[in-house]
Design a binder for these strands. Structure first.
Length: 579
RNA sequence: GCGCCCUUAGCUCAACUGGAUAGAGCAUCACACUUCUAAUGUGAGGGUUACAGGUUCGAGUCCUGUAGGGCGCGCCA
């Protein structure tokens, strides 16, 4: 259990001793911003004082006087208008560090949730036959991280890449395939050739209505089951998926399922029939719509589920997909990591799902947009977007250059591995370290920075620790014994601050899932790494005065690297041995 | 027109959901490598949290209004 959870329990029992059993809100314990105010603090006395019309400081004092002696905190102190400040006993910190260093499962003090849920995570979902551009990076990386963290927390997570493999774009692609396809280029570099075909026909469509009609006809034929068109479609999907998998491989992101839109084609017509039968949907101007007269925000915004021409829409597929995920996977929750512009769409389909009787908890985890130089949204259609694969390649080559400059003595293989780990890590961390709702203008500089609050800063602290253990020059078994038997004592400020940060890991993980906020984990890891770098400068490990200090600091360093590595792995990032 | 989201240091961003003196990085300046890896550390300067009210012991955070920006609103996904 995390320290604030333990303190909250102690606080509750103190409140009971004082005679307060009915609380307006659950008492909360938060970290102190400044260690002058202890390690953690609670404002419960001020909250209660307001309700009970009592003096907050007196109430705080009463609570402090009844605080359990065996708590992880020393006797609480009262400060300011009525804060209750807790200072964790140094031996509690020390014991925690020992546990983190020795835990065979390397959970860094975190305990899995009591109630595991089945969570389906829908993210990335690129369109087929168009390469991923930088705009896709957010959903992909945020979704993967949330999947990792939910899994680490003990949930049953199912990731599904709901690719756009069935839509109007295929009208254009099939028409292009039949008219302007360069087959040797297609073999050479399928993704680029498919993009060229798509872009060319797209431009033609804009200028020429007859082309538009030809595309429409191809689409209708495809949807009607035309043999030739189906084969072309199939081939496109295969080629695209192969290309996508290359990128996901580089990113170290993997999906349990790839159930694209086409997988639900058979469910669309019955679904619409059902919605009509249950009086949820009705006909309007030839289309089938769901209206929401009772919901203020959706009053004039019906959800279309069937076009007047009989075709189905985005919302139809998404609703059919919910059915599937609930029936086949027993989903308790479905999380959609999709950009904020689609908020209305999700409000609508969530409401329809509710009316259909679904109990599943549906969450749209919205994120901001990546903007172009003109501060406008990057559009796939403009075609001039920076491709994701170029960003990754550039990231790797920039970190390669940094390694050449900083550590030229390494072998070429080592340099390759490290530049991959650092480069990809940099892109991921740049994305994850900011609030997901923030819009930002794409810049190479920003996404690929290698100094300051970045991936290499975190990776470098792990590398420094590993270097200490290498310098020990002892066999692994001896090191393991040392780590499992040496007691930890924390006397220097830098040691205490480092231990304090390590101890915070268990309390961070739930807050990340609470608000779907990976940036909180990033901030935490930066704090942890900063505490380590300070410790590293202030406290020699191998050259400490005496044997017990050396061993104590080795355990502390090991607990640090474990927590760092675990935290980074939850962000989908790796740590090199050297850099 | 209606709805949702933004506006915090010169720049890029945080702020654990109402807490104490609003924090980091970049950039600037000054120090620290014969030392466990300087992709680092120590310190300095930098703020009317867009603006105006309100709620209360206490507001960047909540409510109202104003200005500026983005996005979305029936047959695309």
């Amino acid at each position: 259990m995390s320290f604030p959870d333990q303190l909250t329990n102690d606080l509750k029992s103190a409140l009971t001793s004082v005679g307060i059993t009915e609380l307006p809100t659950a008492p909360t314990v938060t970290v102190s911003q400044d260690t002058r105010f202890g390690d953690y603090q609670s404002n419960i006395a001020m909250v209660l004082a307001k309700v009970e019309k009592k003096n907050p400081r007196e109430l705080a004092q009463q609570i402090a006087d009844h605080f359990p002696e065996d708590s992880i905190s020393a006797k609480p102190e009262i400060a300011g208008p009525g804060f209750i400040n807790f200072r964790i006993k140094p031996e509690v910190f020390a014991a925690h560090i020992e546990n983190v260093a020795r835990d065979p499962e390397s959970r860094c003090g975190h305990t899995p949730v009591a109630e595991a849920k089945t969570i389906v995570l829908d993210f990335s979902a690129p369109n087929v036959a168009k390469p991923m551009h930088v705009g896709h990076i957010r959903s992909t990386i945020i979704g993967d991280t949330l999947a990792r963290i939910a899994r680490f927390s003990g949930h049953h997570v199912i990731t599904d890449n709901h690719i756009g493999d069935w839509g109007t774009q295929f009208g254009m692609i099939i028409h292009g395939w039949k008219t302007i396809l360069n087959t040797s280029e297609l073999e050479n570099d399928p993704i680029t050739e498919l993009l060229r075909v798509y872009k060319t026909i797209n431009d033609q469509c804009k200028a020429d209505e007859s082309v538009r009609n030809l595309c429409k006809a191809e689409l209708v034929a495809l949807q009607a089951g035309d043999e030739e068109n189906l084969q072309i479609w199939q081939r496109c999907v295969e080629l695209s998926i192969a290309g996508l998998k290359g990128i996901y491989e580089k990113l170290d992101i993997h999906f349990d399922h790839w159930l694209g839109e086409s997988a639900f084609n058979g469910r669309l017509a019955p679904l619409v029939t059902r919605l009509i039968d249950e009086k949820i949907a009705e006909e309007s101007d030839g289309a089938i719509c769901v209206f929401f007269p009772d919901i203020k925000a959706l009053k004039d915004r019906p959800c279309l589920i069937r076009k007047a021409d009989g075709g189905f829409l985005y919302a139809t597929t998404d609703l059919a997909t919910i059915d599937f995920r609930v029936q086949e996977w027993q989903a308790d929750e479905i999380w959609y990591v999709v950009g904020a512009p689609q908020q209305l769409h999700f409000q609508q389909i969530f409401e329809v799902a509710k009316q259909m009787g679904h109990k599943v908890a549906l969450n749209h985890i919205a994120h901001g947009s990546i903007l172009g130089d003109d501060h406008k949204l990057m559009r796939t259609r403009s075609g001039e977007n920076v491709q994701l694969t170029d960003v990754l390649d550039e990231a790797v080559s920039r970190s390669r250059a940094a390694i050449e400059a900083k550590n030229p003595g390494l072998s070429d293989d080592e340099k390759d591995d490290i530049s991959e780990i650092v480069g990809i890590g940099s892109v991921k961390f740049a994305e994850l370290s900011q609030h997901r709702m923030t819009d930002y203008v794409f810049s190479w500089e920003r996404m690929l920075a290698l100094t300051g609050d970045t991936a290499p800063y975190l990776q470098y602290s792990a590398v420094r620790i590993q270097s200490i253990f290498r310098k020990l020059e002892k066999p692994q078994e001896e090191i393991d014994t040392l780590l499992t038997t040496s007691p930890v004592t924390l006397s220097e400020n830098a040691e205490l601050e480092l231990a304090r940060q390590i101890s915070r890991f268990p309390e961070i993980i739930p807050t990340v899932l609470d608000g779907f906020r990976p940036n909180l984990l990033c901030t935490y890891l930066l704090d942890l790494a900063r505490a380590f770098h300070s410790f590293f400068e202030a406290c020699p490990v191998l050259k400490a005065e005496d044997k017990s200090t050396i061993n104590s600091r080795l355990v502390l360093a090991h607990a640090t690297v474990r927590t760092l590595t675990t935290g980074l792995s939850l962000l989908g990032m790796k740590v090199p041995e050297k850099m």
